[in-house]
Design a protein around this nucleic acid. Structure first.
Lengths: 190, 190
DNA sequence: TTTCAATTGTGATGTAGGTCACATAGTTTC
DNA sequence: GAAACTATGTGACCTACATCACAATTGAAA
C-alpha cells in the first residue's frame, strides 16, 4: 500500500476530509526512510516535526542522569511519535526518538500541523481525537504503574502487542515496563 | 468573578471566540454546586459530562480490587475533570470523581462538546489544546514514576502545587504519589 | 569460520517501600 | 464536654525489585 493510502485510511477513521482536502493535507507531509538504530530526534535537538510511521518500529525514550533509559512509547505502523512537549513548547528535546528496525515515516512540521488545523476544520478534529486517545492511553498506563506489579504489566503489554515480543529486544521491554532487564528475565523464566 | 468570566478568561488563553460565539458556547454549560465529600461520578455510572472547576478541589481516582485508592488528578479552579475514557467511549465509569472541598463547577455534556466543536472551529481548537496539555502532563508524570523515588515525587508535587499541602489530607497525597500513607509520613519526618 | 560484541540468564546481596499493629492527635456529633 | 470518628505517627517485619558480578548464548562482522 502507498504512503498516501495508508495515511488516508488512518485519518478517515476519525475525520471526513474530501478528496481534494486530503490531497492538500497530504501535500504537507514528507516521506523519509531511516535505518535500524538511526536517531530521529536526539536529546537537545530542536524539534519541529512529528512522525507518522508507515513501516518499522520506533521507540521514544528518556535517558536520566544515571544513563538509565525509560521508554515512553513503542511506535508501530500508523502510530504517531515525537517529543510533543518540545514540539509544542519550542523547548529543546528531552525525549529522544530512534529506530528499532528500518523504518519509513511521514514527517509533518508543527507549523504545518497548525496551518492545516486552521485551514481545514476536519483536520483539527482529527488531531483532537488522536491526542485524546493518547491522553486516555497515558492515563491507563499511569494507573497500571500505580496498581500493578512488574509481572502484571508485562503480561498486559504482551497481550496488547503480541508482535513486540519477537521484534523488540527484552532490554527495551524492560525499559518500557520500568524494571531492570534482570527482573524481566526472571519474570518469564518462572 | 462570575462563572462566565472565569470560563471566558480561561478559554481565551488558547482560542479566539467572538463575544457572540462565546455567549453561545457558554449557553451549553450548566452551573452546579457540590458539598465536600459528595460524589460527582461514581464507579459504574454512565458518564455524560465533563466538569470545569470554578472553585474548590476535586479528585479523580481509581479503586482497585483490594479497595486501594489511586488518585489520577487533583482538579483545582480552572481545571477540567471527568472519566474521559468513559465519556468518549460510552463505557461505564471506572474512574470516580468527588469533592475534597465544597465546589462549584460548570458541566458540559459530551454531546454538547462535540456539537460545539462542529459548529465553532475555534472551540475545537480550544479542546485540542487542552487535551494536548493533558497528554504532555500525563507523559511527564509517567516518566517521573519510572525515574524518581517517592521522596522526589513528593517534592515535585509540592513545588508544583504548594496550596495542596494545606487543603488536601496527607492520605490523598500519598494516593497520588502511589505510596502508602505510612511511607509518606516517614518521608517528611526525616 | 573465527572473532568480537551485544544480548540474555542467574546467583548473591542490598534497599525502598509495603503491611500490620498500635499509639496519638484532631474533629465531628450528640 | 464526652464519645466516636478520622487522620496521622511510628515501630517491627516482609517483599518486590535493584544492583553487581559473572556466565552463557546469540548475532554480526570480517
Amino acid at each position: 500500500m502507498q504512503p498516501k493510502e495508508i495515511l488516508k485510511e488512518h485519518v478517515s477513521k476519525t475525520a471526513s476530509l474530501t478528496d481534494e482536502q486530503f490531497d492538500y493535507f497530504f501535500s504537507h507531509f514528507t516521506y523519509k526512510t531511516f535505518k535500524k538504530g538511526q536517531t530521529i530526534i536526539g536529546e537537545g535537538d530542536k524539534v519541529d516535526c512529528e512522525y507518522f510511521v508507515l513501516s518499522g518500529y520506533l521507540k521514544s525514550f528518556f535517558i536520566n542522569d544515571d544513563m538509565k533509559m525509560f521508554i515512553l512509547q513503542f511506535a508501530m505502523p500508523t502510530w504517531w511519535a515525537s517529543d510533543y512537549n518540545a514540539l509544542y513548547s519550542g523547548e529543546r528535546a528531552t525525549i529522544s526518538l530512534d529506530c528499532i528496525t528500518d523504518a519509513e515515516v511521514l514527517c509533518l512540521t508543527g507549523h504545518d500541523r497548525e496551518k492545516l488545523c486552521n485551514e481545514i476544520h476536519a483536520s483539527e478534529h482529527f488531531f483532537r481525537w488522536r491526542t485524546n486517545r493518547g491522553y486516555v492511553a497515558a492515563q491507563k498506563r499511569l494507573l497500571s504503574f500505580m496498581n500493578n506489579n512488574a509481572r502484571h504489566r508485562y503480561e498486559e503489554l504482551l497481550a496488547q502487542y503480541p508482535t513486540l515480543y519477537n521484534v523488540v529486544p527484552k532490554q527495551l521491554i524492560a525499559s518500557y515496563l520500568g524494571v531492570s532487564r534482570e527482573t524481566l528475565s526472571r519474570l518469564y523464566h518462572s
